[in-house]
């Protein structure tokens, strides 16, 4: 299950009073179709990451270039963006800020309700989405979203997107502000999505997260794609890391620094997450 999404020579700049005249997206050509798995988008603040994903579902219209989903131009006359937004689920930064219903279940059901699904289908989708984000539906469905912990609120907001059963989930900084437990639960949630064949696109500044999860990484610098390939090759390239305002994952730095002192039974692990799995066995 995945969406064939193609961006062809996209440029974007804001127009309007006070708008910066810089090009936010500068001739981006990108194919996110085909294979499931996790693609990470990294790069400095202001490099255009968030603006890029807003083009995936027609939230922003490119100044020039085309966005195609399954070969169809999403800005062609009569194209149904509502359907597109069900297929590609966008989770924004601090999505919990948009919670507004009186109960968790109603908040998660908001998207499906607008899609006109039957009550039974909505109930099932809400239940499944809550399980996907590791919130027990029985305990959480009737609670007010405003009295949950930050990590729980974040997961309710993500569940609201998952409830529409998207084929691609795009998450913008999903772990910002979460504690280690919250971070691990988001990590598990993403792994679960990958396992079930949903394509995941992840914007993050956490390079250990990229190292743990992503198969492909896009580095954006000043509105262009400066690197597109496997994470390992990016992390081995100091000039690109410097240009991209990035740092090598802590895990890889620690491993290199310890050299011969790295325990033999750690050797197989390429990330902290993998290492914890080995140690716990």
């Amino acid at each position: 299950m995945s969406v064939d999404l193609q961006l062809q020579d996209i440029c974007f700049r804001y127009t309007g009073i006070g708008a910066s005249d810089r090009m936010i997206l500068d001739h981006i050509t990108l194919n996110l179709g085909g294979a499931p798995g996790c693609t990470a988008i990294v790069g400095p603040s202001g490099s255009g990451k968030t603006t890029l994903i807003q083009h995936f579902t027609g939230l922003l219209r490119p100044s020039s270039g085309t966005v195609r989903v399954e070969g169809e131009d999403i800005w062609a006359r009569g194209y149904d963006h509502t359907l597109l937004r069900r297929r590609i689920g966008l989770v924004f930064q601090f999505p919990e800020g948009q919670l507004f219903e009186e109960s968790v279940a109603r908040d998660v059901a908001f998207g499906p309700l607008n899609l006109g699904w039957s009550e039974e289908r909505i109930d099932a989708a809400v239940e499944k989405a809550l399980r996907q984000v590791r919130l027990d539906p029985v305990r959480f469905r009737d609670r007010s979203p405003f009295n949950l912990s930050e990590g729980e609120k974040r997961r309710v907001a993500i569940a609201g997107v998952l409830a529409m059963e998207p084929e691609m989930v795009v998450l913008d900084e999903p772990t910002a502000g979460l504690d280690p437990r919250g971070l691990r639960s988001v990590e598990e949630l993403i792994e679960g999505l990958i396992d079930q064949g949903t394509a995941v696109v992840l914007i993050t500044h956490n390079m250990d997260f990229v190292n743990d999860l992503a198969r492909r990484v896009l580095l954006m610098i000043s509105g262009r794609i400066a690197y597109d390939g496997p994470p390992a090759a990016l992390f081995a390239e100091p000039t690109l890391l410097q240009a991209g305002s990035l740092e090598e994952p802590l895990f890889l730095r620690e491993r290199a620094a310890r050299g011969a002192h790295w325990p033999a039974h750690f050797r197989q692990a390429g990330s902290l997450r993998a290492l914890l799995r080995i140690v716990r066995k």
Partner: peptide
Amino acid sequence: DEPTSLLDPQHRR
């Protein structure tokens, strides 16, 4: 209050 959670690694630094 968690001022760096949205920053890239170098701006965090």
